[in-house]
Design a protein around this nucleic acid. Structure first.
Length: 221
DNA sequence: GCGACAG
DNA sequence: ATCTTGTCGC
C-alpha cells in the first residue's frame, strides 16, 4: 500500500481507487463467527482505543477479543472517517487468534458519498466479508420504516439501493445498514437483525464498545 | 447561496 | 467521538 493519505484529495483518490474492488455478492456459507469493531477516544484527538470482539454467530457468546492503543490517523472529515480509525482497527484485527467470518463495523459501507465507507474499506483491505451499521444517517434518500422489529426501508443514491434503514426493536430508532464487502443489502440487513435480538445495536458493536471503554478506564488509572 | 455532514 | 444528572421504565 502507498503512504497513508494526508490530504482530503489524497484520501478521496484512494477511495476511488479501491472502490472497484468491492464485491456485493453474499459470501457462500453463513458466518460461523462475527466480529464487532469499535473505537473510543481519550484526550480529545490525542489517543484512542480500538477493539475487536469475536462472537459465535449462533450463540452470540464471545470467542476472542483484541485491543490496541493508538492515535487517530486522519482528522475527522465526514466521508473520510475511515482514514481516521482503520490503522488502529487493522492492528487490533492482527492480534486476534481467529479469523472472523464477518466484520460488523461502526459506520457506513456503501451508503457513502463515494460509495466507499469504512465497512467497504475494511472489507477490501482484509478480504473479509464486512457490513456497516450506522446510528445516524450520512447520505442517501430514505424514509422512516414501520415501527416493528424487522421493518425496513431502502436507502438510495441516484435511484440505486445502497442500504437499508432497519428497525431492530419495536418502537426504537432504526439503524442504517449497508454492505461493506462480499455481501448484499439484503444479506447485510438479515445479518444485523439476527445480531440484534434484544437491543437496538447488534451484540457485536455492543461488545466492542464495552471492550473499548473498559480498556480506556483501565488505562486511565 | 444555504443546509447536511458516519465517529 | 466526548462533555454530563436525574429520571422514567422494563
Amino acid at each position: 500500500m502507498t503512504a497513508w493519505p494526508t490530504t482530503v484529495a489524497e484520501a478521496e483518490a484512494e477511495q476511488d481507487r479501491l472502490r472497484p474492488l468491492v464485491d456485493l455478492t453474499d459470501a457462500g456459507p453463513p458466518p460461523r463467527t462475527v466480529a464487532g469493531l469499535d473505537v473510543a477516544y481519550a484526550d480529545g484527538d490525542e489517543r484512542l482505543v480500538a477493539a475487536v470482539v469475536v462472537l459465535d454467530a449462533g450463540t452470540l457468546a464471545p470467542v476472542d477479543q483484541a485491543i490496541t492503543i493508538g492515535r487517530p490517523a486522519f482528522p475527522y472529515v465526514p466521508g473520510l472517517f475511515a482514514f481516521r480509525e482503520i490503522p488502529a482497527l487493522l492492528d487490533a484485527l492482527d492480534r486476534l487468534t481467529v479469523r472472523p467470518d464477518l466484520l460488523v463495523c461502526d459506520g457506513h459501507g456503501l451508503a457513502h458519498p463515494r460509495r466507499f465507507g469504512l465497512a467497504c474499506h475494511l472489507g477490501v483491505l482484509t478480504g473479509l466479508p464486512a457490513l456497516g451499521v450506522g446510528k445516524t444517517h450520512l447520505t442517501g434518500d430514505w424514509t422512516m420504516p414501520g415501527e416493528r422489529r424487522g421493518d425496513a426501508s431502502p436507502i438510495t443514491l441516484d435511484g440505486v439501493t445502497v442500504g437499508a434503514v432497519l428497525r431492530t426493536q419495536d418502537r426504537v430508532r432504526p439503524v442504517f445498514v449497508s454492505p461493506g464487502h462480499r455481501c448484499s443489502v439484503a444479506g447485510a440487513t438479515a445479518q444485523v437483525l439476527a445480531l440484534a435480538p434484544r437491543f437496538r445495536l447488534p451484540e457485536t458493536t455492543r461488545a466492542a464498545d464495552h471492550a473499548c471503554r473498559a480498556a480506556l478506564a483501565e488505562r486511565t488509572r
